[in-house]
Amino acid sequence: RRRVRAILPYTKVPDTDEISFLKGDMFIVHNELEDGWMWVTNLRTDEQGLIVEDLVEEVG
C-alpha cells in the first residue's frame, strides 16, 4: 500500500470528512480521488478521512 508523510500540519474544516494532522504524521492511502484529495488512515491517530495531496510527500 502507498504511504505518504505530512510535510505541513493541517486543521480540518468543521463538518467535513477531512482529518486534522501534524507535520510528520504517516498515512496509508486507500483511495485517490479527484482534485488531489486522498482517503487515508492516519497511522498515529488511527483516524480515517480526507487529506489533500499537496500537504504530503511520498515515502520510499
Rank of each mutant, 00 (worst) to 15 (best):
R1C: 15
H30M: 12
D25W: 03
L8F: 13
V4D: 00
D17A: 13
D35T: 10
P9A: 14
F21S: 01
Y10R: 05
E53T: 14
F21A: 03
K23M: 11
N31Q: 13
T45N: 13
A6N: 00
M38N: 03
M26I: 14
I7Y: 06
V59M: 12
M38H: 03
F27E: 00
H30Y: 10
T11Y: 07
E57H: 06
I51L: 08
G49C: 02
R1Q: 14
P9S: 14
D15P: 04
V13F: 10
G49Q: 00
D15Q: 11
H30P: 00
T11H: 09
V40H: 00
R5M: 11
R3Q: 10
P14H: 08
K23W: 06
E53H: 14
P14A: 10
G24H: 07
R5T: 07
L50E: 05
L50P: 04
R44D: 04
R3M: 15
R3L: 14
K12F: 03
R44Q: 05
D54K: 13
T16E: 02
E57L: 07
G60Q: 14
L55P: 01
F21T: 02
H30T: 06
E53R: 15
T16V: 03
V4E: 00
L8R: 13
T41P: 00
G60K: 14
L22I: 12
K23T: 11
R5G: 02
D17M: 13
G60R: 12
E57V: 11
L33S: 09
D25K: 01
R5Y: 07
E34S: 14
M38Q: 03
V29W: 02
P14T: 08
E32G: 07
V40L: 01
V52M: 13
R3E: 08
D17V: 09
I7A: 05
T16W: 03
L33Y: 13
E57R: 08
M26L: 14
I7T: 09
D35C: 14
K12T: 04
T45E: 02
I19S: 01
V13P: 06
V52L: 15
T45R: 02
F21Q: 00
F27P: 00
V40C: 07
T16L: 03
F21R: 00
V4S: 02
R2Y: 07
E18I: 06
V4A: 05
E53L: 11
V29F: 03
V56W: 03
V56G: 01
W37N: 06
I51A: 05
H30W: 15
V4W: 06
L55C: 09
V4Y: 07
M26C: 13
E58W: 09
Q48H: 12
D54I: 10
R5N: 04
D54R: 14
L33A: 10
R5I: 11
L8A: 13
E34W: 11
E47C: 09
R5K: 10
R5V: 11
G60M: 13
T11R: 09
L43F: 06
L33V: 10
L22S: 09
I51P: 00
G60H: 14
L50S: 08
V13M: 13
E47G: 04
R1S: 14
I7R: 11
K23G: 07
N31T: 13
D17E: 13
I7K: 11
D15W: 10
L43R: 04
E58L: 08
A6R: 01
I7N: 05
G24C: 09
L22W: 11
R2L: 07
Y10A: 03
G49K: 00
T45Q: 02
N31D: 14
L43M: 12
I7V: 11
I19G: 01
R44V: 04
V13L: 12
T11W: 08
M38P: 00
K12V: 03
W39N: 04
I7C: 08
V59T: 08
T11E: 09
F21V: 04
I7Q: 06
L33G: 10
N42S: 09
L55K: 11
E18C: 06
M38E: 01
S20T: 08
A6P: 00
E53A: 14
V4R: 05
I51F: 00
G36S: 06
L22T: 08
V13Q: 15
N42H: 08
I28N: 08
V52D: 13
E57C: 08
R2Q: 06
E34L: 12
E58I: 09
T16Q: 03
P14V: 09
S20K: 02
D17G: 10
G24R: 03
V56D: 01
S20V: 02
D17P: 10
R2F: 06
V29A: 02
V59D: 08
D17L: 14
W39R: 06
P14D: 10
N42Y: 02
W37C: 08
V40M: 00
M26N: 08
V56N: 01
H30F: 09
F27W: 01
E18K: 04
V29Q: 02
L22Y: 09
E53I: 14
E47W: 03
L50K: 15
R1K: 15
T16M: 03
L50G: 04
R3G: 05
D46W: 15
V52T: 12
L8V: 14
D54F: 14
W39K: 04
D17N: 13
D54H: 12
